[in-house]
Computed example of a mutant assay.
Amino acid sequence: MGYGNISPQGIPANIIASFEAMCGWLFFALATGLLYGRFSRPSARILFSRNMVVTPAEPFPKLMFRIVNQRSNMLMEMESRMMLVLVDHTNDQHNRKYYSLKLEVANIIFFPMNWTLVHVINEESPLYGKSTEELSRQEAEILIHVKGFDDTFSQILHTSYSYQHDQIVWNARFQRAYETDENGNIIMHLNEIHRYETVI
Rank of each mutant, 00 (worst) to 15 (best):
Y3A: 13
G4P: 04
I6V: 15
S7W: 11
Q9F: 09
Q9W: 08
G10P: 06
G10R: 03
G10F: 05
I11P: 05
P12I: 03
I15D: 04
I16W: 08
A17C: 09
S18D: 10
M22K: 13
G24M: 09
F27M: 10
A29D: 10
L30C: 13
A31D: 05
L35I: 13
L35Q: 04
G37P: 05
F39W: 14
F39A: 03
S43H: 12
S43N: 11
A44I: 03
R50D: 15
R50P: 00
M52S: 00
V54H: 02
T55N: 07
P56Q: 07
E58Q: 13
P61I: 03
K62A: 08
F65S: 03
I67N: 06
I67S: 01
V68E: 01
Q70E: 14
R71L: 15
S72I: 09
N73P: 00
M74Q: 13
L75Y: 07
E77Y: 12
E77P: 00
M78T: 11
S80M: 15
M82S: 06
V85L: 13
H89M: 08
Q93A: 11
Q93D: 08
N95E: 13
Y98G: 01
S100N: 14
E104N: 12
V105C: 09
A106H: 09
A106D: 14
I108G: 00
I109N: 14
P112I: 06
P112N: 07
N114A: 08
W115D: 05
T116E: 14
L117E: 07
L117C: 07
V118M: 05
H119D: 01
V120Q: 06
I121S: 00
I121W: 02
E124G: 15
S125P: 06
S125Q: 04
S125C: 14
P126G: 01
P126V: 02
Y128N: 09
Y128M: 07
G129L: 04
G129T: 05
L135Y: 01
S136W: 06
E139I: 04
E139M: 11
E141C: 08
L143R: 14
H145G: 10
V146W: 02
V146L: 10
V146F: 00
G148K: 01
G148Q: 02
F149Q: 02
D150I: 03
D150S: 08
D151F: 08
T159Y: 04
Y163I: 04
H165Q: 11
D166W: 07
Q167E: 15
I168V: 14
W170R: 05
W170G: 01
N171K: 14
A172L: 02
F174P: 02
F174G: 03
A177R: 00
A177I: 03
Y178P: 01
E179R: 14
E182V: 13
G184E: 10
G184R: 10
I193M: 07
H194R: 08
R195W: 06
Y196R: 07
Y196E: 05
V199Y: 03
